[in-house]
């Protein structure tokens, strides 16, 4: 019995959020429906794709709605770990799982056939096209990391529940948008597609500010984020040690994820017959050049 209580203490939400619960429940339901709709034929969802999807979803849920949530509000390095999962690792897993195709197949036919009026659809499309612009997306990706790690902003985000939720949502949402733009095959991206060469450049460039910021935090010899001393740490630890581990998590795995991204893009280039087709011709849906 005490074991069960301990396990539940770690697995149940520290602060239950109906928004997170409903969003995750709908996403999982759509994916499972999609898997069933795609059946066992050629279109079937491969085991590894489904596994990757559920792993990514479970990891992000664990970061937001288990005891990790408490720990990350009271230990800087766990907060950095939480954001590494929310902004880098979980989105990469979810994007690699072909989630778009499966989720779309899971949407009930009636909803899929609904016609959204242009005056609602076009502003949304314009919004997404602007934040998914090849200049805007990496700026947003790096900018959010710097924004929430600005000491004065970090303080308010950690003490105000609403800002804290906004911070975590913004990281997960931006992670999904950015990694989809970087890692999804061009055929899947349609008109919003970014060339593979451009992606390699973006992935290499976004690593640099993350390296610099991580190094700055790791090597800083005074405490940058006083909120953890003010509101108490989850357990007793030297504040600078906490900051150094947090800095290293911002520094090394972040750059590593750019490398993973570059490998995925190289894989696309080698295996995708359309990879070297100029964008104009793709848009006009001319037959891809056979030269490869």
């Amino acid at each position: 019995m005490p074991l069960l209580v301990t396990v539940l203490r770690y697995l149940l939400p520290w602060q239950f959020s109906p928004t997170i619960f409903i969003t995750f429940a709908i996403t999982i339901a759509l994916y499972v429906r999609g898997m069933m709709a795609l059946g066992r034929g050629n279109d079937r969802v491969r085991f590894w794709r489904a596994f990757t999807f559920f792993l990514g979803v479970a990891l992000s849920y664990a970061m937001l709605q288990t005891y990790v949530d408490y720990l990350s509000a009271h230990m800087f390095w766990i907060h950095r770990f939480q954001h590494l999962i929310l902004h880098h690792i979980a989105p990469v897993l979810i994007v690699l799982a072909e989630s778009g195709r499966v989720l779309r197949a899971g949407v009930p036919a009636r909803v899929r056939q609904m016609r959204v009026p242009a005056r609602i659809r076009s502003p949304i499309q314009l919004f997404f096209r602007s934040i998914q612009h090849p200049l805007m997306a990496p700026t947003l990706f790096v900018g959010l990391i710097f924004f929430w790690l600005t000491p004065s902003i970090h303080f308010t985000a950690m003490i105000d529940t609403r800002r804290y939720d906004l911070m975590n949502w913004s990281m997960l949402a931006d992670g999904l948008l950015f990694w989809w733009l970087m890692l999804a095959p061009r055929q899947v991206q349609g008109s919003a597609s970014v060339g593979y060469g451009t992606r390699l450049v973006i992935l290499a460039l976004v690593a640099i500010p993350q390296l610099l910021l991580g190094a700055y935090i790791t090597l800083h010899d005074t405490s940058l984020y006083d909120i953890y001393a003010i509101c108490g740490r989850a357990w007793a630890v030297d504040p600078l040690y906490d900051q150094q581990i947090g800095g290293l998590l911002t520094w090394i795995p972040a750059a590593m994820m750019s490398l993973v991204g570059i490998l995925v893009v190289l894989h696309h280039i080698l295996h995708d017959p359309e990879a070297t087709t100029p964008r104009r011709r793709l848009a006009r849906s001319v037959q891809p050049a056979s030269s490869g």
């Binding site: 509000a73 009271h74 108490g232 740490r233 989850a234 007793a236």
Partner: peptide, 11 residues
């Protein structure tokens, strides 16, 4: 501790 986002830990 949830409401005021504070932590405490017994050594």
């Amino acid at each position: 501790s949830k409401r005021y986002r504070i932590a405490y830990h017994y050594e």
